[in-house]
Write a protein that binds this DNA or RNA. Structure first.
Lengths: 209, 209
DNA sequence: GTCTATAGGCAGATAGAC
DNA sequence: GTCTATCTGCCTATAGAC
């Protein structure tokens, strides 16, 4: 179980986060302004500053809430007690739900803009990926021990591969407005883990010298 | 052979593109300004407008030149006459070279910002991915016919999976400043294609209902 | 081709009234 | 909590001299 944050917002603050979240996921952190949020909510920019001192603080709150929600979703998958392969499918489905709303993963988007982010946001983005990696690693290790999943390399590297592949599949599928691209890629990746000869087997060769 | 564009720039225009390219690949299209380019080059913003009417035109030129360079690199891989698996590794190495300079793929970055881009830039980004897909598809089909590559689904879907996985591996590896993350993911992906039981085999299950 | 100067607008942010 | 009003600074872009 991974607890990333305990941030809880209600009322106006929560509504601000809702609006800002969509803006970041569709336009990027550098692609929207306080004026965009204010216009959408029919309040003034000054009111926003009452709830979140600056854009940096708003960004931190966004990641914190998003990560907490994601952690809750993963905990729910664990509680459902499904098979390892089904857990991986449930994991991929979390991404698909985001893509269906024509959004990018919040932290995938912020990963692209990483170099322009204030330090606290950077750290929070990495924590999000770390938490995902930890959860996947556990699923992969248990799955391999139970003979349900098959992969050659370390569970850690395989977890990282899954995260990257899903983030990238979203990244490319969204401009095409085509969720089928994401779903096909997901099938390819997960199917290889559920078959006898998974990725990173003995015959694996380095991709570069 | 895919010819994307024939754009050719020399002198100041080429230097502007060089500087702007790094800025887009590291900070995003919405994360830099004409002032940044001007400062780096020790010229004025007004001089930039002489070469590229506006940021949108500069963006189009950037993608056009990047895509042409990428197409040239793929043609060079073809000319080398390597085995299918080696071609895929060479393809992945193109991405690695970009990541080693701590840059994101230009079009991967622009894919994240897609919704904020002017239409001509959007179209150019999709053309880039389409060209990549076409090239990979050909390598995959020839590789399968020759018994060198193994995958269950269509070559098109597998090509798309590769593009997404490499873009995503870059996206996540860059914030960590860790090229090993990218290389491990690449090994996982490509190894599965070079082994008997590749991804998307008969046992493949849909990732979602 | 590059400059100075400047326009016009929007960014994030603050002060102080209500 | 939300407002009006305002500040400062940066943005893209243009005009016109050299």
């Amino acid at each position: 179980m991974v607890t990333i944050g305990t941030a809880s917002y209600t009322g106006t603050a929560a509504r601000i986060l809702d609006v800002a979240e969509v803006l970041v996921q569709t336009r990027g952190f550098n692609g929207f302004s306080y004026a965009d949020i204010a216009a959408e909510m029919n309040i003034t920019k000054a009111a926003l500053h009452y709830h979140f001192a600056g854009k940096a603080e708003l960004g931190e709150a966004l990641i914190s809430r998003y990560a907490a929600r994601f952690a809750d979703a993963l905990a729910a998958v664990d509680s459902a007690g499904a098979q390892p392969a089904a857990k991986l499918e449930a994991y991929a489905h979390l991404y698909l739900d985001v893509l269906r709303e024509q959004r990018m993963c919040l932290c995938g988007m912020l990963a692209a803009e990483y170099q322009t982010l204030p330090e606290p946001m950077r750290a929070a983005v990495l924590r999000f990926f770390d938490a995902n990696e930890t959860w996947l690693q556990e699923v992969l290790e248990h799955g391999r021990a139970a003979g349900a999943l098959h992969f050659g390399g370390s569970a850690r590297d395989t977890a990282r591969m899954i995260i990257g592949s899903l983030e990238g599949a979203m990244l490319v599928a969204r401009p095409y407005g085509d969720t089928a691209r994401f779903e096909a890629a997901t099938r390819n990746i997960l199917a290889a883990l559920a078959t006898a000869e998974g990725p990173g087997g003995a015959r694996a060769q380095p991709a570069s010298g």
